[in-house]
Design a protein around this nucleic acid. Structure first.
Lengths: 168, 168
DNA sequence: ATTTGACTATCTAACGTTAGATAGATGGCT
DNA sequence: AGCCATCTATCTAACGTTAGATAGTCAAAT
């Protein structure tokens, strides 16, 4: 992956997390990266492909970060909570897949598949960590909800409060 | 409020809940309602005003529905949960304010104020119902998160699972 | 007679996307 | 080593379409 491609993905991720799928344009991305819109199209022929690629990379990185924490002995719930917290604190933005999931109704199939994957993998991984399915759903939902609420109230401590009852 | 105005608000609410603030146009709304785009502009001179009006009406109706249940003796948490559930099951869509909150970063101030109001009122009302602030934040976050997750996984039972641990 | 609420018609700007050109790198052939 | 074909990554320019918004008209209701 070239520098330009990863810069495009970076810019698109930030834009989607701030304004949703319909909230950015190829020209926005192009100007963020410092190339022309047609060059963005060279790498991602259609907007849907770009968003799908962003979601896939986001999920891969997210799961990878969680796995790394679990491998070092962290509790699986705390690991998910910590990676969510980092995503919120570092970027001050919503979860990419949460932001896309909020408008899932009109999302292109290609993108929805990737967003679904994030949630399904989350539930699956939490189950592998020893939770039953209902608890896994509860943890993931609570983390997304806490992040959403912290975002709109512009108060990161809300995330702590909103997700504080998850550890048994 | 005339029929046209409320039809415009209805259409805009549905569109925003499905695709977010940037996911609809005046022409969309006009064709939903059966008027011309300029007539929508007559009632709502700018898109931001329309979205803000939608959010305000949504919050008012939501809180009103919760209050009605509480007045009839329902547990305050169950009342919130039930109104959320109804919004999900009746419309098969995300919470309007949740959908807007997910992209709060780039939201016009006028709209963000209304979305914030939903969350602040929710926390306030839950506190009036006897919860401490942390619990109130937790309940509202969990409900939004459960709705989000149910939406993307296209499975309404996820809402039940995701919000099932809230009743003490 | 004025106000209301819709219309037609139009504007400028931006959208996603494509075409065509170009400069630089790569990699076999002779 | 030198040449030619291909590939990569970008550019400028433009396509048709749609965006939000506005000015002016007109009929019905008050």
């Amino acid at each position: 992956m070239t520098d330009t491609v990863s810069a495009i993905l970076d810019a698109a991720e930030e834009r989607i997390r701030g304004a949703g799928y319909h909230g950015f344009s190829f020209r926005d991305i192009a100007s963020d990266v410092g190339v022309k819109a047609s060059s963005v199209h060279y790498h991602f022929p259609a907007k849907e492909k770009l968003a799908a690629a962003v979601a896939r990379r986001y999920t891969d990185r997210f799961v990878e970060a969680v796995d790394a924490e679990v491998a070092q002995g962290a509790d699986v719930v705390e690991a998910w909570r910590h990676v969510f917290r980092t995503a919120l604190q570092r970027d001050g933005r919503m979860c990419l897949c949460g932001a896309l999931a909020a408008t899932s109704h009109e999302l292109a199939e290609e993108i929805r598949v990737e967003v679904k994957r994030f949630f399904e993998l989350g539930i699956e991984k939490l189950q592998e960590g020893g939770l039953d399915r209902a608890s896994a759903v509860r943890v993931l939902s609570a983390l997304e909800g806490a992040m959403l609420t912290a975002n709109i109230l512009d108060d990161q401590s809300i995330f702590e409060t909103g997700s504080s009852a998850l550890v048994a």
